[in-house]
Amino acid sequence: MAIRNVTLAGLDREQLLHMHYQMVLIRRFEEKAAEEYTLGKIGGFLHLYIGQEASGVGALSALRPEDYVVSSYREHGHAILKGIDPKAVMAELFGKATGCSKGRGGSMHMYSAEHNLIGGQAIVGAQLAIGTGIGFASQYEGKQSVVSVMFGDGAADEGAFHEALNLASLWKLPVVYYCENNQYSMGMAVTKAWSVSSLEPRAAAYGMAYERVDGMDLLAVRETMLRAAERARKGEGPTLVESVTYRFRGHSMADPAYYRTRDEEARWRSSRDPIALFEAKLKENDIITDDDIAAANMRADEVVEECAQFAEESPVPEPDALYDDVLADGTGAIAWRNQPSTPRD
C-alpha cells in the first residue's frame, strides 16, 4: 500500500498519526493502571477512560495550551492530553511524592497549574460550577482562554448543571460544557435518568448553542470542539456539546456492571471502538499502515512501562508532608496541633 500525503479535516499525516498515538497511549495507560490496581499498587477508586479516547483526544486537540480543562474523577486521559507527563500521572495513582498532586490526590484528583488542568473533581457536578468561574475570570481579564468543562451524563442531573448553564449563557462566558455521554452514570442508564432523550432541549432552555457529536469519531469531535471554542473565544458565549460515547469497562474497578449485558458491551467494543474506527478511516485514505499501528502500540507500551517503573521507584511522601499546603499561611492552627495542656506551674 502506498502511503499518500493527504490531509483529513485539515490535518496532515503527522498530526493524524499523533492523534492516533495519543488514543493508543491513553488506552495502554489505563490498561496498565488497571493491572497495577489489581496488584495493589493503586488504592481507592479507579475510573478508567477506555472507550472514550476519541471523545477526549478530539476535544482537547481543538484547544490551545492556554485553555483550561476542568474535569471529573475520570480524568487520567485529560491530564495526559493537557500535557502532564504521564509519569507524574502514574505516580499520582501510586500515591507517590512525584505525582502531579504530590500523592495527596490520587486517581480522582490530578491537577496541573502549569498545564491549566484544573482537577480532578470527585463531587459530581462541581466542575460545572468551577469551570463557570474560570470562564468568568478569563472574560474579566480580557484573556483569550476558553474553558472546557468535562462532565458525564449523570452530572447533567445535578443542580449545578442548571445554575452554571444559566449564568454562563446570561453572562456570555467563554465556556464549553462538554458532556461525555457514555450512556451510564454509575449503574443507571441515561435513558432512565433523563426526562428528555438528549441535552438539546436543555441547552435551548438557556438559549445556549448546542451540538451533538458521535464521540467515537475523532475528527467529528475535533471539528465540533473547534467551533464551540471559536464561539467562546469570539465572545459569543458558551456551547453545550454532547459527545455520545461508551465506557467499555465498569464505572470503577469495583463495578461488576450487572446493570447491563455483556452482549451490549460486546456490540460497542466490536463495532464502535474509537481507535479501530480511526484506524479504518486512516487506512481507507492510505494514511496509515499496519506497521505504523504496531509501532504506535509498541511505543505506547514502552511509555507506560516507564511510567509504572518511575511510579514504583518514586518515594512515598515524607510524613511531614501531611501538614503541608492546608493553607497558604497555617501558622495559628499548626502551633496548637500537637500540644498537650499547659501546666499551671
Partner: peptide
C-alpha cells in the same frame, strides 16, 4: 483524625 483534608497516599 488529623487536622488536614484526607490525603490519598496510603502512608499519609
Amino acid at each position: 483524625g488529623k487536622d488536614v483534608p484526607m490525603p490519598y497516599s496510603k502512608s499519609l
